[in-house]
Design a binder for these strands. Structure first.
Lengths: 342, 342
DNA sequence: CTGAAAGCGCTAACAC
DNA sequence: GTGTTAGCGCTTTCAG
């Protein structure tokens, strides 16, 4: 079965043919091969044919690295996201758009790790990518200042970057939280709690602040209702306990992101979920199949991704254009869990 | 706000300093700079210091492309998967392992499209990646023959490649289907139906065949019970209708992959799901939160990913080693939907 | 239309 | 220890 590799001795990687080899085989100059490979029309038909034959017989494939080194452009854009291999319509949109433009996408996971993010970003810079889209994790990205100065375009997605001046596209967190709150308030709830991500995270900060603002604007007390923090099951359980079993139990709940929503649903178990009104921030997979189906305020992640890469293109085309921050609206998706009356 | 870029005129990308510039700045030879950059210990401490100062003042970053061209290795492995930006523990495992080995991962989506797959694979070859992992889509990959010959290691994941000799890791589809069948049979079901992917797809073929074999080995007729085909809602609905509303309605159902499972659950609606026994092939997100919770035969995708990259490493280390196909067992996860009695 | 030669930014022999 | 000199494989002036 391994006969296909019979010619290969262990460890001896056969050398690939280069343009010189092709030129020799075809009996033309190196330059002519290059022209054929790049579809330059100024090549005589018979020469072109000879070259193509030589390419086929030698199985020549141009070395992209050499071309990139010479031309100075990589035709590749980088995406440093929190998780490739997780549902991420923004990333999907970026890849699709990049492909449309004939660009390659180099995607890597920061894994919510600041050091890892830095590694990836620096590595992308060393590879001289045409541009970088990043879902920022770290608190300061000032180490990228020299890279920006050197001309590598960077666009932030989901959160702004601090320490450097980069374009940014993100959701309208405040309005999204407001939407969720008002929806529940409109269904008669007067004790609405919030459980969400830590305020050390930008979006966690924005959403918790927006929720507090919503409470105040409705003349409600804040204490016991707003629970930002780490996303451990224990912490969420504790927060849930305070919210539901205090002196004045909440009758409705806003969860600040997908992981919180799922954690809460798991904790509530099957039946309890139908007595408490819940609106989740962020879409959840199979939300429509849950019981009751989950009402969410959904981010328009596809638009976010598309905008990110468009901002990047614009920045590449004109490094001097004014910085831009795009805020993308969210959408309330009514499915049942948020329509439980008080 | 755009002051940080004040120095950049539109379109004029500032040239980055090279090693020559650093050498001049530091007053040493090019070679010495190279040594410092590569942490070569044979550099005098004061020279090293001078170089480091020069690097910092000029904001020098070595150009990875040039290094790759010179050394011949890219330090990058490619993964052509069906979808990045979707849940894919195999990809996650690959990325993590690659990182551990100091390799960069270049991931791209074939998007279930044969032409796209070909584009990506060829592009990866032109970039001279150290190796490629692919979830094959196309029916023949013989066009990769020259590339293999030229020494680029390729490993197939989830399905074998046809037309070329490549290592492969995949799930034990037949056993998985057998497990699902026997589980339902053990709960008293005597009319068990199967709805799954088209038999034009390798795994669809394997699973449908295994299901037919299971039926036969239990002396049951096959007609009306095995429904492979396209994954459109209409087709699945029609298959479901035949299975449930025929002369001898099925009392249990095996769904052949995640998309089929979800389609079926959507079609059945909330209540019907608790009367029909269902075992899904493939894990489904939030399966434990559904009602009833979904029993599945889960692929060990993390192991598949880890195995894929280990096979790749082994192949890179020894191109002459015998071809290997690794079959990974599946696991029955009992949650409720598969334990409804006949 | 085609060819010779220079060079992209770096590493690797081989002197000194 | 350090510097000099070749290239890696390609594109690109610039002559023919």
């Amino acid at each position: 079965m391994s006969s296909a590799r019979a010619g290969n001795r262990a460890g001896v990687r056969p050398k690939r043919p280069t343009m010189v080899d092709v030129a020799r085989e075809a009996g033309v100059a190196l330059r002519t091969v290059s022209r054929v490979v790049n579809n330059d029309p100024t090549v005589g038909p018979e020469n072109a044919a000879k070259v193509r034959v030589a390419i086929a017989t030698l199985n020549f494939r141009p070395d992209e690295r050499a071309r990139q080194l010479r031309t100075g452009i990589t035709g590749t854009i980088g995406a440093a996201v929190r998780r490739i291999a997780e549902v991420n319509p923004a990333l999907a949109a970026i890849e699709q758009t990049a492909r449309t433009w004939g660009q390659t996408l180099l995607a890597a996971s920061t894994d919510f790790d600041e050091a890892r993010e830095r590694e990836i970003l620096i590595s992308m810079c060393r590879q001289r990518l045409d541009g970088i889209i990043v879902e920022p994790i770290g608190e300061s990205h000032s180490y990228l200042e020299p890279e920006l100065e050197a001309g590598i375009p960077v666009v932030a997605m989901d959160r702004p970057m601090s320490g450097i001046a980069a374009d940014c596209v993100m959701s309208d967190n405040a309005s999204g939280i407001g939407m969720a709150f008002h929806h529940l308030h409109g269904h008669g709830h007067r004790r609405i709690a919030y459980i969400g991500d830590s305020e050390r995270v930008f979006s966690g900060r924005e959403r918790a602040a927006a929720f507090r603002a919503a409470l105040r604007s409705h003349g409600q007390p804040v204490e016991g209702l707003v629970h930002p923090g780490e996303l451990t099951p224990e912490r969420v359980a504790a927060a849930l306990d305070v919210a539901l079993h205090g002196a004045a139990p909440a009758t409705a709940l806003v969860t600040g992101n997908m992981d919180t929503t799922i954690a809460v649903l798991r904790l509530l178990g099957r039946e309890a979920a139908s007595r408490l009104a819940i609106v989740g921030f962020d879409e959840v997979p199979l939300a429509d199949l849950l019981q009751p189906a989950l009402t969410v305020v959904a981010q328009d992640t596809a638009t976010i991704g598309r905008t990110a890469i468009e901002l990047l293109r614009a920045r590449i085309a004109d490094p001097a254009r004014p910085l831009q921050t795009v805020i993308v609206p969210l959408e309330l998706r009514i499915r049942g869990s948020g329509e439980v009356r008080a």
